[in-house]
């Protein structure tokens, strides 16, 4: 926390983050799957406490990009620096970044053989070496925060999709990350469950978490995002503050996408 000048989160209103520290810096990131180029010179900087929503059609590389940021995919060219640590083949750097960055997946990926509380406390106990009692107290507090403390002793298979995704958020928060990545967190959910997950994410954004969200939820983007990034074909087509992005898109492709989706 070198800089505390970041403005109060105002929820969608443009706030001045120009003085904030850089949390994620990507420079000319490229990645290929065989002959197919998934990322083509992606460059972007995400500031501390900033909420960035990444949009784009299927196959545009947005998931690949977000997965590169905690090294679930390996980029082949360019640089990715997360909280002043560059992602290279250095195992120590990778572990450092992963323990600073939380991630939430489309398919929740909870551990089905552990109960809800154990899902949340597994990493704090084994990675952070926390005492079990302390980890469980923190885990219960997090479950409280995402609104399902009464399910702590159940197993993932016994919960609804929305509840599972909220547990997944609590599990990521248990490592006390400085950045949260969301990879289409609501795409696998029934419509009435989407809201409960988005509400948790909004609270998280208001608490000042640096967030990068791949989603198709335009309402969420308008309400919470500081900035939008539109991708296609592995490239960033357009990025702008939320207001300008929706009111005054400059690229033809963005206009077409927005006309289809809104």
């Amino acid at each position: 926390m070198t800089d505390t000048t970041a403005a109060e989160p105002t929820g969608g209103q443009t706030r001045d983050l120009s003085g904030a520290r850089d949390m994620i810096v990507c420079e000319d990131v490229s990645k290929w799957y065989g002959d197919f180029q998934a990322l083509d010179g992606v460059s972007a900087t995400i500031k501390e406490q900033e909420v960035v929503v990444v949009l784009g059609p299927s196959g545009s590389g947005k998931s690949t990009w977000i997965r590169c940021i905690n090294r679930l995919e390996i980029h082949q060219e360019g640089r990715i620096v997360v909280d002043d640590v560059e992602l290279t083949n250095d195992l120590r750097n990778i572990e450092k970044v992963r323990s600073e960055v939380g991630m939430v997946f489309q398919q929740f990926n909870l551990f089905p053989h552990l109960n809800i509380l154990d899902n949340v406390t597994l990493a704090p106990i084994w990675v952070r070496k926390k005492p079990r009692a302390e980890a469980e107290a923190q885990g219960m507090a997090l479950l409280e925060r995402v609104g399902i403390p009464e399910q702590a002793q159940k197993y993932p298979g016994q919960l609804s999709g929305g509840q599972q995704q909220r547990v997944a958020i609590a599990r990521a928060l248990a490592m006390e990350p400085r950045i949260m990545l969301f990879d289409e967190p609501t795409s696998a959910l029934d419509p009435e469950m989407i809201k409960e997950v988005l509400d948790v994410m909004k609270t998280l954004a208001l608490s000042g978490m640096t967030m990068m969200v791949v989603t198709h939820e335009m309402g969420f983007a308008k309400e919470v995002a500081d900035r939008l990034i539109f991708m296609e074909g592995g490239q960033i087509v357009e990025q702008n503050t939320t207001e300008l992005f929706f009111s005054n898109p400059t690229e033809e492709r963005t206009k077409l996408f927005l006309s289809q989706i809104l």
Binding site: N70, L72, M103, N109, F111, A174
Partner: peptide
């Protein structure tokens, strides 16, 4: 595969 990815993402070795 998602299980391994989720475990990596929370920092397990």
């Amino acid at each position: 595969k998602g299980q391994t990815e989720a475990a990596k993402a929370v920092g397990l070795r």
